[in-house]
Structure formats: C-alpha cells, structure tokens
Amino acid sequence: MKKHLIRLLAALSAAALLSGCGGTASAPAASAEPKEELQVTATVFPAYDFARAVCGDLAEVTLLLPPGAESHSYEPTPQDILTVGDSDLFLYLGGESDAWVETLLDSIDGGVQKMKMMDCVELKEEAETEGMTAEEEHEHGAGEVLEYDEHVWTSPVNAAAITTAIGERMAELDPDHAEAYQANAADYAGKILELDEKFNDFFETVTNKTMVFGDRFPLRYFADEYGLDCYAAFPGCSTQTEPSAATIAFLTQKVKEEGLGTVYYIEFSNHLVADSIAESAGAQTALFHSCHNVSKADMDAGATYLTLMEGNLETLKATMK
C-alpha cells in the first residue's frame, strides 16, 4: 500500500513540475502490482555493478542513468522519480555530479532507504595538480561534501569496501537472505582485491610512475592507491573542454621531460586535447576507463567493474615501463 502511495505522490509531483515549465505531459503510469523481489536502483555504473553482484537473483537492480549519459548534466525524468520511489534501496554517489539527486528525492516520500557510496570510504579532496586549468568560477555549492573527490571506486580497495557495505545493507533489508548477500559481497570483493594485488605487482616493476592525462582527472583515489604522479588538463568534475595554452604547454613539456610514450584520456572523451599533446610530444594516446559510466555496446557486451579495470591494467602494461 505504501509503495502505491509513493507512486501516486511521485506522479503528481512530476506532473506539477512539468506543467510549471509550460509542458502538458502526463506522468508515466505505475504498474498495477508491485514486484515481490526487492528493488535496488543505482545512479551510476559502479554502484549498479557492485549491487548486481551482491544481489544475484535475489533482487532486481536498475541503473538509473542510461549507458553513455553524463551524470554531471543529467536531468531526472518523471519515470526516474517513480523508479526511485519504488526502490527498497537507492544507491548514489553523494557528490557534485549527482547533486540533482536531492531534487529528485524531494519529490519522493521519505521512506526510501538511501546509501551514499561516499559514506563507505575515507574521502580525499579533489586533486588540482600543477599546470591544471582550473574552473573559472568555483561551482561547488555550499555543501561541504562537494569539496571532495567523488570518484571513490577508482581505487579497487575502495570498490571492495563499497561492495561489502552494500552486502551488509541488503542483509539488513532482507534478513531471510542475509547470508547469501554477504557471501556474494565477499566473493566479488575478493575478486576486486585480487585485481588490486595485480595492480600492485605491476607497479612494482615500473620505473617511472608518472601519468599525463589530456583530459579530466577523476582518478585521485587510483593514483594515491598505487603511488602515481599524475598530471591532467582539468579537475575530475570540471565542465571545461578547452584547456589554457599554458596547460597544454606544461603537459607537453612534462611528457617530454619524463620520456613518456603515452598521453591518456578517459571514456566518452573526444580526446582532442590528448591528441594535441601527444602529437607535440611525439607520443601516442590511450584510453583509461574511470568506470563512471559505460556505453550501450559495453553494457550489451557484459562489461563489469572488473572487466573494465582489467582492461586498464592491460593498457598500463602496454604503455608504462
């Protein structure tokens, strides 16, 4: 009964929002009967992947952002409000890129169980390295959490901790299957930690742990985990796409000075900045996946956090000495 009320309130709220903007669209119809299995909704791919590994076939896990969507500029739809309102557990970052979540939650009855990935680990401030083009205006709102780097999952150690935390929360929500959730979480966290060992083993063989990104830098936690020196064109949550001439010159010189053979870029980038730096420095370019979101093709091919990070390891083996 409660979920039917949540759906009704959400639909009415969504319709009111649309009409207030001059639209006349109606909210999507709610399903006639709620499903018996638990409903888990995650805003971004890492939370979705960890949750589906934990839940197995015991709960339905939904990824709210479509594959390829940019979370920083995402605008929730009326159907998103219904989906979150009907969730037994809602997983989100709690950072700048999903600040829109608070608006969405305002449209939903307060009974939805929520879990922030950023609450599961020790946070670090967003990196602003030497030579980086900073935002012209500081856009991080008054909320203190927005001062921290939200890309906590890029450290496999953090990813394992978040997976374990999701397992504990699901065990609380569904005590009858607590052991199954905890076992699934332990299994997936264990595989992630095995990958962490592989990264550690690899970086022990590397003589120069410097990486240059001709892109945003959402990899503070990864870099700190393995003792890397990283330089980039923009901070991790930057909205800019055009670096300053000074940044281009600095990064180009850094590649030359360090004798680096590769300039990296992240997923969904046009990698024009990385191409420009690499061409000037006589280097190549390569993709390093932050795992924030995946393409539809990757999703259809069965991409997971593990497969994406394993791909990153193979890229590093091919490009770092």
Rank of each mutant, 00 (worst) to 15 (best):
V121S: 03
F199K: 00
T154H: 12
P67F: 07
W100C: 00
H140K: 09
G111K: 11
T163E: 00
I81H: 08
N184G: 11
T103C: 14
P156M: 01
L91Y: 02
E135P: 00
G131W: 01
T83S: 05
E204K: 08
M170A: 07
E70H: 12
T164C: 02
K191Y: 07
V112L: 04
L123C: 08
M118N: 15
N208T: 14
M118V: 09
L82S: 09
H72W: 06
E194T: 10
T77C: 07
M117G: 09
E172M: 12
E130C: 09
A134I: 00
P67M: 14
M132W: 10
V206E: 04
E147R: 15
E125L: 04
N184K: 06
H177L: 07
V121L: 05
Q113S: 15
D88C: 11
N200K: 02
P76F: 09
A161Y: 02
D86A: 15
V152F: 04
E144F: 02
G110R: 09
S71L: 08
A142Y: 15
E137I: 15
P67V: 14
E128A: 10
V206P: 10
D187W: 01
A69F: 04
A180R: 03
Y181L: 05
D80Y: 07
Q113H: 12
Q182S: 07
A142G: 06
N200S: 10
Y148H: 14
A69K: 04
G111Q: 13
Y92G: 06
V152Q: 01
D201N: 15
E150L: 11
K114C: 10
